[in-house]
Write a protein that binds this DNA or RNA. Structure first.
Lengths: 136, 136
DNA sequence: CTATGTGCAAAGGGTTTGCAAGTAG
DNA sequence: CTACTTGCAAACCCTTTGCACATAG
């Protein structure tokens, strides 16, 4: 019953939420809600997809995990960790972490004429595996 | 019957498509599919939303117009014009054109470890109107 | 005890698709 | 004539929601 409540006292512990958080955090991938659902179902067979969505939303809103928006695809989720961006492989569709040397936000804030408070970026390209295959 | 076929010979002229293209190009806004539908319906009352979607997709694929992906919202469409980005006003939801001094694509291509071939960016902030109101 | 969380099933909203009829070339 | 387009309605897909029950604190 260890509730790590960094996010307000109105949040109660739930086994389901912990499993969902684990599923996102332990995954090297960037699972979709459904992928999380499939994974958590192995330990908690009666969990519902609605619960997964509710908790992913709650976790993302509280910055416990990060939502990766992929145009034309379901949202993906990523563990909350240090600043990085995401690339979608245009061949296999996988989501790849990209680590820019300099954060982009500062230059977006410096854009003339607007006051930028946030952004959503998705890069497209080939992941290393697909790039290798293409050479063959 | 002036068919401007910059995009292959398999495309036939259609009055509907021209109206859709006009609706996007003449609009200073960044209309959604439904907004285009409402606008075109004034001149072509029997047009269907499916036709609007089909043509917007076709036009966007052929770079006659540009698709603006807004997470959590319908796609918006913009006339195809010189390079610029888009900001979503977090207060009123409007889509605002932003003109960076230096194209971002080059620096994305220079990112280490990947081969970036494209990107999708949405900025968030306050449009000038909402920024003014906030001061009051 | 009370507010929060869950599971289920149904609803939602935006977008796409199958089909038969229409039309450009 | 033939391929491309259209309108209509139904299907799709992902996600959210209403509700009654369960459970943390």
């Amino acid at each position: 019953m260890i509730s790590i409540k960094k996010w307000g006292d109105r949040v109660k512990y739930s086994r389901q939420r912990e499993l969902i958080r684990e599923a996102v955090n332990q995954s090297g991938e960037h699972p979709t809600a459904d992928a999380v659902y499939q994974k958590v179902r192995q330990k908690e067979p009666t969990i519902s997809l609605a619960t997964v969505y509710r908790n992913l939303n709650q976790l993302a809103e509280n910055n416990m995990i990060r939502r990766v928006v992929v145009p034309g695809d379901s949202d993906h989720f990523d563990r909350a960790m240090e600043y990085h961006e995401h690339m979608i492989c245009t061949r296999c569709g996988s989501v790849v972490d990209v680590w820019p040397e300099h954060p982009l936000f500062e230059q977006f804030q410096a854009l003339p004429g607007i006051c930028c408070t946030g952004y959503e970026l998705v890069l497209y390209g080939l992941c290393s595996e697909c790039a290798d295959q293409k050479e063959q």
